[in-house]
Design a protein around this nucleic acid. Sequence first.
DNA 1: TGGGGGTACGGGGTTTTTCCCGTTTCGGAG
DNA 2: CTCCGAAACGGGAAAAACCCCGTACCCCCA
Lengths: 219, 219
Amino acid sequence: MSADSVAKVVLVDDHKLFRKGMVELINGFKGYEVIWEANNGKDMIGKLTFSQKPDIALLDINMPEMDGYETAGWLKEHHPEVKVLALSMNDNEDSIIRMIRAGAKGYILKDAEPTELRLALHDLSTKGFFYSELVSGTLVNSLNRGPEGGKSQAAPLTDREKEFLKLACSELTYKEIADQMCLATRTIDGYREALFEKLHVRSRTGLALYAVKHGLVEI
Amino acid sequence: MSADSVAKVVLVDDHKLFRKGMVELINGFKGYEVIWEANNGKDMIGKLTFSQKPDIALLDINMPEMDGYETAGWLKEHHPEVKVLALSMNDNEDSIIRMIRAGAKGYILKDAEPTELRLALHDLSTKGFFYSELVSGTLVNSLNRGPEGGKSQAAPLTDREKEFLKLACSELTYKEIADQMCLATRTIDGYREALFEKLHVRSRTGLALYAVKHGLVEI
DNA sequence: TGGGGGTACGGGGTTTTTCCCGTTTCGGAG
DNA sequence: CTCCGAAACGGGAAAAACCCCGTACCCCCA
């Protein structure tokens, strides 16, 4: 893409009003144009097959159906030339690291200044990446916390674990969860222990809060 | 306000990018102008003293410092002529009812169509209210669930209860919470029971999820 | 052909949560 | 002045959550 042409942007976010607002904002930036939008990752994949391919994909993280992490991973595999900019509510380390791992070339917060968004789009277009202080600070921080600091995050959850996690975010007892999943309560104990380990929490409350914070469950 | 003048709108939301996008969107509607913005309720109150008074206040619900409910209540008391339109992520009954109780003249979701926002602004300007199907459906629903359906929501929490609730949204045991609040564990039992009753939950997990869902704690 | 990961399960234990039965104290409303 | 609600506290007990000790099967893959 040459420097004086228009960069084609797609917006993937499940909040329509936010999306429409962002379209106005981005189309107001000289040199950028939102060519189409999607509600979530699945929607985006569907539209990609019969629409123009974008230069930049602006991905929200918390979305139903297919979230930002998965979507970024899919783009990395199938369309690595599309540059992903993550757009998130929260600045927690895990999210940033997971997103960068999934191939995002930048990460900005939903309460950033419009000028930061503009700068991010510019850097993505020209340099191919936008590593703000937030991102670089986070990465340095995670590395400085010992040799295993970098790998401690983002242990992937199995399907069964995700299923259990959703049920744990409720007022069901573990016994009731076991019944719903057609398992012994002891097996549920196993899933709980595995998730405590993977997510670095010590209680069911911690489990539920983690799940909500990271968009693993709808609330 | 006459029909052919421009309605003055203020936007109160803690996410800057969303806000800026909404400004573009609303300013794009003929007959509406965003005259200023605020980060949260406190910020709005501060700006109101030395800025133009709006016709319409678009209030997000989940905000730090001073949330949408409190802000709507404050406006109802101090500037009842300002028409409040609530802008929320979630469509749960409690939020809608609380917001309407607090004086909101309308309630729309962040994933509404821009045309719905426009219609809401129009109705607010001309009729003074905008009760969408979401709102009226919810209100009818809540009344049909028995005579006490209407009053069951929105039992106000005391300061101490809010304090306890925040601490309950953590991995602290009740014993540790008691120590932090300088209380006996039995007293904590009392708060837990009171909140179970008020918030209609049966477990600590339910407590935490309720608090997050309704923006009573930052996460 | 052995190891590793995912899944599923048993027994026995401690700690925490939940739920009862109560009491006192204090300040404000009737 | 008396009643009421709120905040604070106690003892005891059942249920749930949490944490160990393990086993076994299947599948993939090096």
